[in-house]
Design a protein around this nucleic acid. Structure first.
Lengths: 143, 143
DNA sequence: TCTTGCATCTGTAGCTACTACAGGCACCAC
DNA sequence: GTGGTGCCTGTAGTAGCTACAGATGCAAGA
C-alpha cells in the first residue's frame, strides 16, 4: 500500500464509509472514550489518521463478534498499554464464547416451543386458538 | 378450581410472586398500557383480579418466548377485541420463529469465528496475540 | 462574488424493556 | 407509639445507539 494512503487524513464521513460505522456512532464512541479525540481542521471538522481508522475497524469487528463495549474497552486497554497478554485475550474470548453458546441454547429451546405451538394451530379463521390458549393457561410457579 | 380462588383479590406483591414478574415491571406494564389500571384499596394499593393474573402470566410467558412488547400488544389486542383469528396468531408465531432462527444462525456464525480465534491463540504470556492481530487487520468494505 | 448544496458541527431527546432509587404513606403487631 | 413491612409516586439510570434541530464549513458553479 502506497505511503500517501497511510498518511492521509479522513473526515468523519470517510471514516464511516471505510468502516461501515455510522457517523453518529463514531461521535458516540468518542464521547464515551472508546475513540480518542481527533485533531480538527481549521473549520472545526474532525480529522482522523490511519491509526484511528484501524482502531475504529477493530471496534466494529469486535462489536460484530458480539463483544460488549465494556469488553472492547478492556481489549483496547490492553492494546493501549502495550500490555497484551495473549492469555488474557484468550480468556476473554473463551468466556464470551461460553455466553454465546448459552444464548444459542436458550434460543433453540425457544425455537422448539414456538414450533410446537405453530404445529398445534389450525391456521384457519376459527375463534379458538390453541396458541392463545397455551399462553393463557394458569401461571406456573415463579421462574 | 374452587370459586373463592378465582374471586380473590391480589396485591401487587402477590401478583409478582404468582407470576414471577418484578413489582416495578408490573407497574411499568400498567404505565405503557399493557396491563389495565386495577382497582385500588381504601389505602390506595393496587388490587388485582384473577383475570389480571391470567393476563400478566400471558405477558410473562410471551416475553419468555421472546415476543416483543409490541408483538404482545397485538396479541392482546386480538384477545381484547374477542377477535382472535387463529390464522393471524399463527402468522405472528411463524414470523417470530423465523426471526429466532435468524438469530440462532447469526450466533452460530459468531461461535465459529470465536472458536477459530481461540484455537489460533497460544494462550501464553506472549506479547503478540493472533486474536488482536485478527481484529486489527485492515478494514473490510463497509458491511 | 454570490449562491447552492452537501457535510459536518453541538446538543438533546428518543428508542427497548426494564431496574433502582428516594422520600413518603398505610397498616399491623407488639 | 413504635418498629417493620409493603406499597406509593416520580425520576433517573442501564446499553448502544439513532434521530433530530439549528447552526456552520466548504467547495463548485453562475
Amino acid at each position: 500500500m502506497p505511503e500517501f494512503t497511510r498518511a492521509r487524513a479522513y473526515l468523519i464521513g470517510a471514516m464511516s464509509q471505510e468502516t461501515g460505522v455510522n457517523i453518529e456512532t463514531i461521535r458516540y464512541y468518542e464521547k464515551i472514550g472508546l475513540m480518542p479525540k481527533p485533531d480538527r481542521t481549521a473549520g472545526g471538522n474532525r480529522q482522523y489518521s490511519h491509526d484511528h481508522l484501524k482502531r475504529l475497524s477493530f471496534i466494529r469487528k469486535s462489536r460484530n463478534l458480539g463483544f460488549s463495549i465494556a469488553e472492547i474497552r478492556s481489549l483496547l486497554g490492553m492494546v493501549d498499554q502495550q500490555d497484551v497478554s495473549c492469555g488474557d485475550v484468550h480468556r476473554m474470548t473463551v468466556r464470551h464464547l461460553g455466553a454465546v453458546r448459552d444464548k444459542i441454547a436458550a434460543l433453540q429451546q425457544l425455537e422448539d416451543a414456538l414450533e410446537g405451538m405453530a404445529a398445534k394451530c389450525a391456521r384457519g379463521d376459527v375463534p379458538d386458538c390453541p396458541i392463545i390458549d397455551t399462553l393463557f393457561e394458569q401461571p406456573e410457579a415463579a421462574a
